[in-house]
Amino acid sequence: MSTKPKIGFYWCASCGGCEESVVDLAEDVLMVVGAVDIVFWPCAMDFKKADVEAMPDKSIVATLLNGAIRSSEQEEMAHLLRRKSQVLIAYGSCAHTGGVPGLANQFTREQIMKYVYEDAPTMVNDKKTRPQTHFKEDGRETELPQLRNVVRALDQVVDVDYYIPGCPPTPKLLKDAVLALLSGKLPPKGSVLAPNIAVCQQCKRNDSKPQDISLTEFKRPHQIIADPEKCLLAQGLPCLGPATRGGCDAVCIQGNMPCTGCFGPVDNVHDHGAKILSYLASTAAGKEQKDITKTLAGIPDPVGTFYRYGLAKCVLRGKVS
């Protein structure tokens, strides 16, 4: 039996991009594979739940779990992997803060089921059949995972040791995290394994930002051709870089697209969306209600914009129904 540290990967409610990001390590993936024993990685290798159940508790040195927790199956696997792992890492925005799937918390489970199985224009379902969690036919019994009431970030289900942010995380963050794991030089439990400083600090356009931009109009990326040298916020695009944890080298901004906040907030912030709201509204000009309302109308969907990756971790956790 190998004495190399055992590592697991798992995929819950997410798009698969996080799995891709592991491959994005390129040559470094060989370094990782050489240094560790991957004992569980359903996306890439053939493992079953039973294999995990058979492992001794805490026998996996670290599991990197990506994806939010939406179904009972995901929830069960989270509990199981928590039990089997010394270190559980929420990998990527969805596990970290609920991610894009978290936006589903604007709708009740019933609304989602009804739309998907009845109202969606592509749906033909005259009997309005819905998936059942238990199903018996011809003496066979099938069980399907249950869709939970809400989407949860990993730490809303189990105890999480570390977070690697990003949609998806950059290869550099993953590599740094693996190196830290291997060397045992890990920061205090609960840390996000990315710098505790916002994107602007790494953004090359920072110097171009005037001190007072007093926006009278917010624009959406498709409405303008942004100057590739200048601060995007100063050009009217609601760039979330000021309120979003850095460590991404401002890649989106380098690609002339505003930051959408995938790394989540920095440590001092309790509610990412509320903080984004605060600084963006502060950036708006106007003293009269009608002017202010007009300017801020340029942000047509505050919830979707400010909590694109973090509605599950919003202090209200979603829409109050």
Binding site: N196, I197, A198, V199, C200, Q201, N206, D207, K209, P210, Q211, D212, I213, S214, G241, P242, G246, V266, D267, N268, Y279, S282, T283
Partner: peptide, 24 residues
């Protein structure tokens, strides 16, 4: 902890906030 984003500077009516251009 400051990213140098300059959001705070125009907030102050007393011009108490400035930017250290070296430390950004």
């Amino acid at each position: 902890e400051c990213s140098g984003c300059k959001t705070c500077i125009p907030m102050c009516p007393y011009t108490a906030i400035s930017r250290d251009d070296v430390k950004k």
